[in-house]
């Protein structure tokens, strides 16, 4: 019964702590859909520099994958080495590549949340162990 209570409290605490989660599409602040995205482009391999301009035109739409998808389909299909594949301007959020930048490594604005969650987990671990030991000592 007590174990169930500990697990329940743990779950509730985690739930409260993680309201703002790692779903980057949901929590990206507006400023990160703009200029920062541009910086990421500069770090990428530029396979087709002629596409960079068109991608910049759609920067503000980066958080809307559906519209970006339509654009990419019009421009970015190339034939390479006998196989069909999409080639976009580096870092462009597009069909098949949007997820690439929707990863924690590329979204510095959630790193604080990673740190916060790690600390919460450590505190929870300590509380769980303490309660378990206290319970055994009482027995």
């Amino acid at each position: 019964m007590r174990l169930a209570a500990v697990i329940l409290i743990t779950a509730v605490l985690l739930l409260l702590a993680c309201k703002a989660d790692y779903d980057i599409e949901e929590v990206t602040p507006p400023e990160h859909t703009g200029t920062d995205h541009h910086d990421e482009h500069d770090e990428c391999e530029h396979e087709h520099p002629e596409h960079v301009e068109s991608s910049h035109e759609h920067e503000t739409e980066a958080a809307e994958p559906a519209s970006v998808h339509e654009e990419s389909h019009e421009h970015d299909v190339l034939e390479m080495s006998g196989s069909h594949r999409h080639v976009h301007a580096a870092g462009e959020k597009n069909h098949g590549t949007g997820w690439f930048f929707n990863q924690p490594w590329a979204a510095s604005f959630i790193w604080g949340k990673m740190l916060r969650d790690a600390l919460i987990l450590l505190v929870l671990s300590a509380v769980i162990l303490f309660l378990s030991k206290y319970r055994r000592k009482r027995q």
Binding site: M114, L115, L121, S125
Partner: peptide, 22 residues
């Protein structure tokens, strides 16, 4: 980022081990 990810992973690991021990 590497350091943060390692810290996050180890913290979650410690949490899982604590629950496992209980």
């Amino acid at each position: 980022y590497f350091l943060l990810a390692i810290f996050y992973g180890l913290a979650y690991m410690a949490f899982m081990l604590s629950v496992a021990l209980v």
